[in-house]
Design a protein around this nucleic acid. Sequence first.
DNA 1: AGATATAGTATGATTTTATATACTATGTTT
DNA 2: AAACATAGTATATAAAATCATACTATATCT
Lengths: 121, 121
Amino acid sequence: MAENKFNSKDMIARCVPMSRLQSVIGGKWKILILWYIAFYKVQRFGELMRRLDGITQSTLTKQLRELENDGFLHREIYKEIPPKVEYSLTEFGESFVPVLETMIAWSESYLCPDYKNPYEK
Amino acid sequence: MAENKFNSKDMIARCVPMSRLQSVIGGKWKILILWYIAFYKVQRFGELMRRLDGITQSTLTKQLRELENDGFLHREIYKEIPPKVEYSLTEFGESFVPVLETMIAWSESYLCPDYKNPYEK
DNA sequence: AGATATAGTATGATTTTATATACTATGTTT
DNA sequence: AAACATAGTATATAAAATCATACTATATCT
């Protein structure tokens, strides 16, 4: 049996950042949205709608607002007609990109091993 | 404006591993459960219950079953009274540990910067 | 004989998440 | 004059996730 060198109180305390991470990137679309914005430079609401197969406008709006409130995204509004809004990563959002990279690398190797990225040799 | 060197079809295809990852580690408790098992060597149902503040038995059971079905966890049943079951990472589950490490490192640095891990200098 | 321990299951209620549908604004194009 | 484009909002509904509560089994301890 493995030994546990942490006591109960420490274990609970240590868990806090993981809990926060869960609450911040949980949700059915968030890492996908961040992924599109970070790696494919998708910036427009309409394009995200087309990419995220099956999402509704109100759900996308809600997820984007939460990502904005949590500091990942910047939302630039242009006073034009028809309306134009561009989403981009904040500095904080950029800091999360290596985590996304680790996630996608693992997913491609272990979760979808038959998946072939056409841009890698 | 950033250029996008991927066409629409590729973008959708490329997204698949991220979608699967989302479906596999989404949910309110899963990365937390994996974290406890991987880093604190928690193996028993009852101990997980005590760690995961607020989770109910049925929810914990469901999450553990899903992690087992998705290949992350091994569930070893001992034919004893009172019942004894031990959870541990499979080889596949172990492959995910570096991702968990990246997640927690980012969370500690960026999400909970005031959090102090008592076991690091 | 009754309490204790562990790992659950069963049922139904509640909360959270997501969906469908209709609607808004207004400059430009047909 | 009507249609189009974009980025939404509003309202109501449905589906999924989670929770609360009560219950099961049975060897061992008191």
